[in-house]
């Protein structure tokens, strides 16, 4: 069997990061949210706009129909605690004399660190 292309049953698929989604691509596997609920079903015709939306929803990559072109390097995005604090402090800059806002800032900081850590 040597020398033959790998034989695959079913759909030929490749995994791509959501920012590489192009119009008319076909989803090869369903996409689930972190809670396990289905966001998109297999066979959905994708579009760039939908790719943006998936990104907004925290989905990193999807399987689409088609042959693998290049090996995909995994890109992992992590935010350091310092970066997160800087980002939030900038957003909250004008509100820090409000004790409620301080409480919200701290809770959001804790929450986002916990989320990014998993």
């Amino acid at each position: 069997m040597k020398g033959y292309p790998p034989f695959r049953i079913g759909t030929v698929m490749k995994k791509i990061p959501v920012d590489k989604i192009e119009d008319e691509m076909v989803l090869g596997r369903e996409v689930c949210g972190t809670g396990g609920n289905t966001l998109l079903t297999k066979g959905t015709i994708l579009s760039r706009a939908l790719g943006r939306r998936l990104q907004n929803w925290g989905i990193a990559s999807v399987y689409v129909e088609g042959e693998e072109e290049l090996p995909q390097e995994e890109s992992v995005v992590t935010v350091s605690p310092e970066e997160l604090m800087r980002h939030l402090s900038e957003k909250f800059a004008k509100t820090m004399n409000n004790p409620y806002m301080e409480k919200i800032l701290n809770a959001v900081y804790r929450y986002r660190l916990k989320k990014s850590g998993k």
Binding site: K91, K94, T95, Y100, M101, I104
Partner: peptide, 30 residues
């Protein structure tokens, strides 16, 4: 509105966060 800005869910067109109204803080018993 304030919480989702802090969580960066989407973007409504401006980068900062409004300060929570004191009366709202009280009426929601924050």
């Amino acid at each position: 509105d304030i919480l989702v800005r802090a969580l960066d869910y989407g973007n409504g067109g401006d980068a900062h966060i409004p300060s929570l109204s004191e009366q709202v803080g009280k009426s929601l018993d924050l």
